[in-house]
């Protein structure tokens, strides 16, 4: 069900540009042989998503998208790639899982099917139906950050704190696993 909304030419152009960025980037991630090039394509995808956010007036999300994903997470990817020197061609003909290809195909079919079902059920761009049952649409003319902050710290407080706790647990676990420690004797410390 495609809603008969009229879009202006600039917004269509912006959407098309964002879509091209996202799709070309995503294709690049899976087709490039060199992991560094894949990471660069991933940044392109993230930029495309940020552009789409800006076009939807979600400026704060766009900024966070760039700061957190492009500015921190992919930098860490690159950091690991550079640090561990895995920037060589991988042996793609050896499969670590036996049934990985059929399983991947199944996953792709499920994902695409789910997306098509979602599109058929709700607004084809935003999936409005699922959002509108939870809360009201964002009021216009009010600052993004204000509304997001209110939503996160009132309606979704539990989910927010649970996510925070999850991240802390992950960090503590990573430190515990990665850190081999020994206790120095007191004279060693004094040196």
């Amino acid at each position: 069900m495609i809603a008969a909304l009229s879009y202006s030419w600039p917004s269509i152009l912006v959407f098309a540009a964002a879509a091209v960025l996202v799709l070309v980037g995503a294709l690049g991630v899976i087709t490039f042989k060199n992991p560094v090039h894949s990471a660069l394509s991933l940044i392109m995808t993230l930029f495309g998503v940020a552009v789409a956010f800006v076009a939807q007036q979600a400026d704060f999300l766009a900024a966070v998208q760039i700061i957190v994903y492009a500015g921190a997470i992919v930098v860490l990817f690159l950091f690991v790639i550079m640090f561990l020197g895995v920037d060589r061609k991988e042996h793609v003909h050896v499969e670590p899982f036996v049934a990985q290809r059929p399983l991947a195909a199944l996953g792709a079919v499920i994902t695409v099917g789910g997306l098509i079902a979602l599109m058929a059920e709700s607004h084809w761009v935003t999936g409005v139906k699922s959002v509108s049952t939870v809360g009201t649409a964002l009021a216009t003319g009010q600052a993004n950050v204000h509304q997001l902050g209110t939503a996160v710290f009132t309606t979704y407080l539990f989910a927010f704190e649970a996510t925070a706790a999850l991240l802390v647990i992950a960090v503590v676990g990573a430190v515990l696993l990665a850190r081999r420690e020994r206790v120095l004797s007191s004279e060693e410390v004094d040196e």
């Binding site: 850190r179 420690e181 020994r182 120095l184």
Partner: peptide
């Protein structure tokens, strides 16, 4: 933390 060193 100063008295505990990580790894050899």
């Amino acid at each position: 933390g100063k008295t505990r060193e990580s790894g050899p």
